[in-house]
């Protein structure tokens, strides 16, 4: 049982010992940076342990190199007249589309433009599209999820019914209608996909996660400390949601690239060039019917769409293991 040991008489603790703290804003900053690096490294090593994580990084890396390569090639060995992805014309070839050759490794399209140049040029816009859409989605979904879970009541009912509505709408057909009504360029497309995703399913998933954070005792502790609604949402709930948000960012990239491909294939987007438009061009020229004869018109773009979409999806799955300790393999 409890036997009161001898402890110093009351009051002795009230004279604080002299504290020697080397204090500077810099020290604080260094400590925080070290911590951030540390937790990043811990997450990174889990990510790298999963084979699909590494695979997805390699694929994304290759595409990133492709995106960077285009402007460099245009500045060095490719002249704009021949190799511009939209206005170029391969005068060196007699027939268009021409099969892969030394000067045109992936051949030319029915309009005499270099397919490799188109492929590389489009890579950059796919990244821009995917990442913009993902950022918009996650910014909206995280805020909506946190606010909805925190306040509950009518706010929650409103956002959740809105999400249900968006989920119930058939996504691609809605985009088709929108792109028919408005001339959607890359930026607006990213915005629309981001908004639909952000107020849609992702918000519901992040809200359910936020609900489980909201009932943690540290939220009550923060209230007792004097934290207001804003403080609790942005300092306690959202940072604990971010790992899951990051995961859904990966999945959004996938769906954005896919949506762009479908819309471009249908010729509904106001883009200069994209993987979807490359397939669209082949299709309108009737070359899709020709079996594998004109493979270079379809395979590079199609494979790129599939690969980059899968890479982001697999990256998301690998991230899931970092975020979700229950999925982790045991190492003993």
């Amino acid at each position: 049982m409890i036997t009161p040991p001898n402890f110093p008489p009351p009051g002795s603790a009230s004279d604080p010992p002299v504290v020697e703290v080397g204090h500077s804003r810099l020290r604080l900053l260094i400590a925080r940076t070290r911590l951030a690096l540390h937790s990043f490294r811990a997450g990174w090593s889990i990510f790298m342990e999963s084979r699909i994580g590494v695979l997805s990084l390699v694929i994304i890396g290759v595409f990133a190199i492709m995106a960077v390569a285009h402007p460099i090639l245009m500045l060095t060995i490719w002249d704009a007249e021949t190799y511009d992805p939209v206005t170029g014309y391969a005068f060196d070839q007699v027939d268009q589309p021409s099969a892969p050759s030394w000067r045109h490794p992936l051949g030319t399209d029915p309009l005499g433009r270099d397919v490799l140049s188109q492929l590389l040029w489009s890579t950059r816009s796919e990244f821009v599209l995917g990442i913009t859409a993902a950022l918009v989605t996650v910014a909206i979904a995280t805020t909506v999820g946190a606010v909805s879970a925190y306040y509950g009541g009518l706010v929650d009912v409103f956002f959740m019914r809105l999400a249900d509505l968006i989920i119930a709408l058939p996504g691609i057909s809605l985009l088709i209608v929108l792109s028919a009504l408005f001339k959607l360029n890359l930026f607006y497309l990213a915005l629309v996909i981001g908004i639909l995703g952000g107020f849609g399913g992702t918000a519901i998933i992040l809200k359910s996660q936020a609900l489980s954070i909201k009932v943690k005792p540290y939220i009550e502790a923060a209230r007792v400390a004097g934290g207001g609604h804003f403080h609790i949402i942005f300092v306690h709930i959202i940072p604990n949601l971010l790992p899951l948000s990051l995961l859904y960012m990966m999945f959004t990239v996938t769906s954005a690239i896919f949506a762009e491909a479908v819309l471009s294939f249908l010729g509904l987007l106001d883009l200069r060039m994209s993987w979807g438009i490359m397939i669209h061009t082949a299709n309108t020229g009737g070359y899709l019917m020709g079996g594998t004869r004109y493979w270079w018109l379809v395979v590079p773009a199609g494979a790129s769409i599939t690969l980059l979409c899968s890479a982001f999806y697999l990256g998301g799955r690998a991230l899931d293991e970092v975020v979700n300790p229950r999925l982790r393999r045991r190492h003993d």
Partner: peptide, 13 residues
């Protein structure tokens, strides 16, 4: 007015 919580594991972010 402050409170010390029952569970030291869950009461800190």
């Amino acid at each position: 007015v402050q409170m010390i919580f029952q569970d030291p594991y869950e009461s800190m972010n």
